Computed example of a mutant assay.
Amino acid sequence: FDWSVEIQGYILAASSVGLALFQIPTGFLIRIAGGKFLYGLSLTGISIASLFTALAACWSEYALMTLRFIHGCLETSVLPTTMILLSKWSPAQEKSKLVTCSIVGLDVGTILGFSLSGFISSSIGWPFIYYIFGGCELVFALLWVYLITEDPESHPTISKEELDYINRYSLLDDHSQKEDLPWKDILTSLPLWSLLIANFAVIFIFYSWISHLPQLLNSVLHMNIVNNGMTSSLPHICAATSTLFAGWLSDFLENKYKVSSTLLRKLYIFFCLALDAVLFLVASFILESQLVLLCILLVFFLQGFIWSAVLTNNLDLSAEYSWFIAGSICLASAISGILGPSLNGIILGKGGLMQWKIVFYMDAAVCLIGGIVYATFGSAEDQRWGKREKKFVTDIMKG
């Protein structure tokens, strides 16, 4: 397609705009409709959008832009619904493993997408990438509706032993809780704001380098990566591997050695972001060496630990309001996902090695700020938003 770089940028950004604009409203809709229903509905809509992507692209760039915007709007429910379902299904001792097993699918799907897209495109044509993936999404949506239940009590084949185990160690006091959102407590919560800032940092780095790593390899290292799906998949392979390991390690240390959840989250987020900053600084000094690729891949490996801690911390702070925290995380992700690649693109647009060094310095600063803020204000303690006041009033009434 003969589209200008500006139009291509608008098309790529359209889904992020939809994700940012509709994130918080979708959270309230999830609370009313439930996680299973809205996730299934959104996945069905996403699959239909995928099936029509090739047709929209052939029609006009503005049709594709509109479809990408709708796609982003539909994606707003994915993480909040995942979190609200995990809050009902996860025993406290296994929440880190279950969270990471859920989110690692993002990287696994991307790896498969990169690996299969080139083969499909060269074999039967690029439109079939969207037809095949859209069809698979639709099948998954049907399986979701048939197999998934909103909570353990509703599952038709769950054993009494498993149900008792989940309820005994449940993260929720009451699955049916519909209390008003305690806005004041949430908006003044330093642990929540520190979590959002740490998440902003990790997503800023992630999308910046997903977008510009091929450019670095081509223009600086002079590596031929055209049609090399494996090279494009390497960052996701690193992140997926570390994400799974991080979740298992967290539960192991918490359950066997009684390591504090707050200490673990701070170790994962602060030290990994600090190491990312060091790696970016090292990369700036060895910019024309092949080792710079190793530095970037190590950054992605550490990102898996951070992302695992960020999403598990969602359930730490408040399982009852995990849908709202997840929506806030997605909003911060959408904003940083737009800013990161855009700022890097503006800097790199001038060309030259010095511009790459500036990008590395900027990314190192973002990592350090995010890590220091979380190390100072972060927490894995249940915030019990709105409950202390209710308990106090109840005690007075009883007295």
Rank of each mutant, 00 (worst) to 15 (best):
F300C: 05
F22Y: 03
V202L: 11
L297N: 03
G386V: 11
N314H: 12
Q215W: 10
Y207P: 11
M397S: 14
S189W: 02
T82G: 14
A332L: 09
S342T: 09
Y130K: 03
L196E: 15
I358Q: 06
A309I: 06
S289C: 04
P91I: 05
E162I: 00
I358P: 05
G349P: 14
A92I: 14
F305C: 12
G327V: 00
I325M: 10
E153A: 11
A13E: 06
S77E: 07
G345L: 04
I210K: 01
S122M: 12
D276G: 09
G351R: 01
F114V: 08
A33Q: 10
F114Y: 08
Y268Q: 02
L116D: 00
I372M: 00
S176K: 02
I48F: 15
F119E: 06
P25T: 00
N314P: 15
Q23I: 01
W385E: 07
S102T: 06
A283Q: 13
E61F: 03
L138K: 12
L51D: 02
F140N: 14
T44I: 02
I205M: 11
P80W: 13
W248C: 04
E61P: 08
L294T: 06
G72P: 15
V202A: 10
Y10K: 05
F360W: 11
V299T: 04
I338T: 04
A332M: 13
C101T: 00
K390S: 03
I372L: 01
G135A: 01
D2T: 12
L302Y: 07
N218H: 14
L244Y: 07
N313L: 14
C58F: 10
L281M: 10
P91Q: 13
D185F: 03
S154G: 03
A326P: 01
I237G: 12
L311E: 01
